[in-house]
Structures are given as structure tokens and as C-alpha cells.
């Protein structure tokens, strides 16, 4: 009688485990192990239906006897456990800390980037990526910054071997996209950029940008201002105002810097906006005809606008972060706040 022998073994094993147990919790664990929903005895009882019909009644009987024996033993043992510890366990302290699993946090640059991308995608822009390592042509010449031109001073550049460089802006992506197809072009390009700067509270040699480009017939400066105003309200809140001041970029004409009303002080002046009430968040302008010529677009037929912003520069005033270095130090106490 192999089966009866096996059951006897199981019974002895359970009894010896019970013998060693000294708390209600341990007893409960044993109950779950054998008689729980997925317990060993429960499982065996369930499996009876798969057996040869001839042996089913015998096995069923033996197993049921085992089950009731164990139930009795569990009950008996339960009584034996010292009263105090039982009392203690009976007090259900619903305020004790829950069993919290760790949950990670996304980096604020990722969430900010995603949010900005999301706003523009909803407006109809498509996301395009390009390489970090670029050539002089895509990073400068095609953007109307000829060799030996002082406009190159604005962006001090890291160089690699073979005249390769680390892009100083994500605009090369715009050139690559325009080269590859005809208007209308309506893209945003997020990515990492590099400029020769030392780390300080407002600079980093590595930073992130999102640039946008819209080229079509009849694109106007008025469209640009409207688009950026919509964007600023989406990111900084409905009451945000936008202000443009003239600026110079070689690849746009006219060019402007975009300022938004300070989200913290509502233009009253605070430390975040350096008491001006406004925060500069990006540069923008109408695409320079020379850029169109470089990619083979007819500047008499098409117009376009472009804009670019630093993710760090948008993220900092938004969350009240005062030091850019924090983004790249990856202190847990920093990341966990987002």
C-alpha cells in the first residue's frame, strides 16, 4: 500500500512541524501550507478526479481522514500556545506601517521633456531625433554660421577627431529632416547638447534641448507667437503671459527671446525670476532664407518658424530648482522629490 505509506509520511511530517511551532503565526503558516487554498492536502484532494476511478474512493477516504486529523491537531496546538502571545496578536493595530515596496522615480528632466513633447505632439508636431556627434556642416554652416564668422562665438564647441563635433543645439536635426523631404515640415527634436562651459548653478557642458520647426506656405511670425503662447500656458499654467524681446540668432530673422511671467510670484518679483517678474525660457524666430537655400527650399515660396528651449531652463523655474548641477549629480534625495 504505497499510497497509505506516503500519506502516513506526510502526516508525520506535519505533526513534527507542528510540534516545533510556538506561535500562532507559525501554526497558521502550517495550516496554509497544507490546508490552504493551494495547500498540499487541498491539492491532493483536487487531484483525485484525475485518478483511475478504481482507486478514487480509497484515496479520497484516506485523504479526508488526514485532513480532519490535521485540523484537530491544529486546533489543539492553537489552544496550547501561551495566552499572552495570543492576546498580543489578537490586537489588530491598524496603524502599524504597511508593507511598502520600493517604487522608482523618473528623473525630472525626463518628465519635463515628456510633458513638453506631449504639448507639441498634441498641437500636431512630430518628434524627430538625430545624432549627438555632428559635422561642421549640420551644426553650423547649414544654419547660416559660416566658418570664421563671429556668430560661432555664441556657442563654444567641443571637438572630436576628424572635424567631428558635439552638437551645440538640436537644430542639425531640422536640417537633416528638411534635406530629406519637402514642406510642410512640422517637427520637434528633443535631445542632448554640448557647449564648452564649466559646471555652475546655471551652466552645464551637457544639457538638453527641444527645438521646433514649422515650414509651409504662409507661416507667419504671428503664428509663432501664438504657438508659443499656447505652449507656455500648457506648461506653466493658464494665467501665464508670454513676452518676446528681440535677439540675434544666425539661423532666424527676425529673432527673439521668449520670456514667461514668473509662475511663482505672478510678475511681482521673486528670487526665481531675479526680481524681474519674467523668466527667459527660449529663443525663436522666422527661419533665415539662407537656411532654406542650404536645404534646397525656395525662400520665396516658403516661410517657417523655429524655436528652441533648454529643458533644464524650463524645469528649473517650474519646480523652483536653483542649481543646474543637481540634475547631473543624481542625489536620491533630489530624484525622490519628483
Amino acid at each position: 500500500m504505497k499510497f497509505e505509506k506516503e500519506i502516513e509520511d506526510i502526516k508525520n511530517e506535519i505533526l513534527s512541524e507542528l510540534n516545533l511551532s510556538s506561535s500562532k503565526k507559525e501554526i497558521e503558516d502550517i495550516r496554509i501550507k497544507y490546508l490552504g487554498r493551494k495547500g498540499i492536502i487541498t491539492q491532493r484532494l483536487k487531484d483525485i478526479k484525475n485518478l483511475d476511478p478504481k482507486v478514487r474512493p480509497r484515496h479520497g477516504k484516506v485523504l479526508n481522514i488526514l485532513k480532519s486529523t490535521i485540523e484537530e491537531e491544529l486546533e489543539r496546538k492553537g489552544q496550547e500556545v501561551p495566552k499572552e502571545s495570543r492576546e498580543e496578536e489578537r490586537f489588530f493595530d491598524y496603524t502599524m506601517p504597511g508593507d511598502r515596496r520600493w517604487l522608482g522615480h523618473l528623473h525630472p528632466l525626463t518628465t519635463t521633456m515628456d510633458e513638453i513633447v506631449d504639448v507639441f505632439v498634441r498641437m500636431g508636431f512630430t518628434v524627430k531625433y538625430g545624432p549627438d556627434v555632428e559635422t561642421e556642416f549640420y551644426n553650423f554652416e547649414a544654419l547660416n554660421m559660416p566658418k570664421d564668422h563671429p556668430s560661432r562665438d555664441i556657442q563654444d564647441t567641443f571637438y572630436l577627431e576628424n572635424n567631428l563635433l558635439l552638437r551645440t543645439q538640436t537644430s542639425p536635426v531640422q536640417i537633416r529632416v528638411m534635406e530629406s523631404r519637402k514642406p510642410p515640415v512640422r517637427i520637434i527634436s528633443p535631445g542632448r547638447c554640448y557647449r564648452v562651459d564649466n559646471f555652475d548653478s546655471s551652466h552645464s557642458p551637457v544639457f538638453h534641448q527641444i527645438e521646433g520647426l514649422y515650414v509651409d506656405k504662409n507661416v507667419t511670425l504671428s503664428n509663432l507667437i501664438g504657438t508659443l503662447n499656447t505652449f507656455a500656458k500648457a506648461i506653466f499654467g493658464e494665467s501665464t503671459r508670454t513676452k518676446l524681446t528681440p535677439h540675434y540668432f544666425p539661423f532666424t530673422e527676425p529673432s527673439a527671446e521668449v520670456h514667461v511671467s514668473c509662475p511663482f510670484c505672478k510678475e511681482k518679483g521673486c528670487t526665481t525670476c531675479k526680481h524681474t517678474g519674467w523668466i527667459e525660457i527660449m529663443g525663436c524666430g522666422m527661419v533665415h532664407p539662407e537656411v532654406f537655400r542650404k536645404v534646397g527650399y525656395d525662400p520665396d515660396k516658403y516661410t517657417g518658424f523655429a524655436f528652441g528651449m533648454g529643458i533644464e531652463r524650463v524645469c528649473m523655474p517650474r519646480y523652483g530648482i536653483h542649481d543646474m548641477r543637481l540634475f547631473f549629480e543624481n542625489d536620491q534625495r533630489f530624484i525622490h522629490q519628483f
Binding site: L103, G104, H107, T110, R192, Y194, S204, P205, F328, I335
Partner: peptide, 14 residues
């Protein structure tokens, strides 16, 4: 990865 408890970090490329 975030649901598995990993925090995202951003390091410079150098």
C-alpha cells in the same frame, strides 16, 4: 523599471 523600484538617473556623457 520605475515600477520595480529603480530611480532614473541622468549622467553627463563624459
Amino acid at each position: 523599471l520605475v515600477s520595480r523600484g529603480y530611480d532614473e538617473v541622468v549622467n553627463v556623457s563624459f
